[in-house]
Design a protein around this nucleic acid. Sequence first.
DNA 1: GAGCTTGTTGTGCAAGTGTATAAATAGCCT
DNA 2: AGGCTATTTATACACTTGCACAACAAGCTC
Lengths: 224, 224
Amino acid sequence: MPDATDPAPMNMPSRRRFRREGEERRRQDLIEATLDSVAEHGLQGATLRTIALRAGVTAGLIRHYFPGKEELLQEAYAALMGRMTEQAKAALVMEDASPRQRLAAFVTANLNAPIIDARVFSLWATFIGRARADPTLAHAHREGYLGFRNEVEAVVAEVLAAERRNPDASQLRHHAIAINAIIDGLWIEGCLAGEMFSTGELAAIGIKTVEAELGLAPDGEENQ
Amino acid sequence: MPDATDPAPMNMPSRRRFRREGEERRRQDLIEATLDSVAEHGLQGATLRTIALRAGVTAGLIRHYFPGKEELLQEAYAALMGRMTEQAKAALVMEDASPRQRLAAFVTANLNAPIIDARVFSLWATFIGRARADPTLAHAHREGYLGFRNEVEAVVAEVLAAERRNPDASQLRHHAIAINAIIDGLWIEGCLAGEMFSTGELAAIGIKTVEAELGLAPDGEENQ
DNA sequence: GAGCTTGTTGTGCAAGTGTATAAATAGCCT
DNA sequence: AGGCTATTTATACACTTGCACAACAAGCTC
């Protein structure tokens, strides 16, 4: 009579099968699995075993690619920020568009998917919450923030130049700070309560508010 | 024969001395210690033992006041949000002030200490990062956010009424969303990079941006 | 195909986690 | 002062965590 307690065939000692992936591919997968784990369970829930399970490997492998958990998390955060700013800046390099149109496109890009996304926001908040205690994170954020704000300031300068206005450096800086705040604030609202806004509504509000901040006359297509 | 393995003096059985504090006091202390721990070490570093140490008690006591760690964290978050919104709203109840002045005071209150504070921001980010996975946190945030936005919308209505403008509900809502975003965005900038702004600078930018959003004529004290 | 490199697995371990519970004592009531 | 009770301490426990390491096998080179 066969062994009823053992559901598996007799070849017990067989190890788990595996494939050798390229180094870059594995690192990428592990980073992605890390971001998924953090987004879903927070930093405390993102254990090496959880991450490994999600990446389809066993926990021990992580140590083969990263010195420790700390470094894995840092690389994951860097990857996240890189992706976000990259997508955001992409809207700025449009050819054949007036500065004002480029600014509007920038705002629109930042206030729609995939930038407006609950998962991304959750990750951002989780990591940024540790920035105060972790100088590495703080520095990474500072760089990203200043880069972003400088982009904004550059477009603003072009927009105002096209309007034949001549703001001084201080005014320019204030505009950049304010516009950055508008985008960030609406981004948060959209990520946290996305279903309260219809499609494109946040972008429309954003453009209107930014143009009001810059003192631009309302566009021809809408009045009041 | 005496126990030679015991390095301590003979009066061993002495326990740690303690005082019995009132229930409300102890709960308050534990919540504060929890917020401190979370702000300093993140959610993962906020262990029961760390919290207890900071509160000057032993870990076991926490279970006497809270069913579990989860509930302690939830109460801590509620306390944090309560304190923040309370301080913010306080600026709105000024007597003998025009709506426009009250709005300006509201913006100013939200863009200075103690609302602008790296520790508070760190806590906010840490908790809000878990909102997606924790319905309790999500609900608490939603309530706070809507309450805040409604306050803004009410003042905006008064301000515009005083200016003899007659916005419809949709315009009012958009103004509230935008102003909320401006405040939130500047709040983040101030918390994360406070030393980049001079005192009162953020509040000044905030007021100017908000008034531009509402289409208010610049105040008499400043031009351009 | 044989052999070698190294990516990958599996197991083990010490430290730390939240929770449970028994033992002690501070401080009120009489 | 003496006792009672609830607050507080202290210890135990089962479990998880990050990390270390030895065994293994995938897939290249010859």
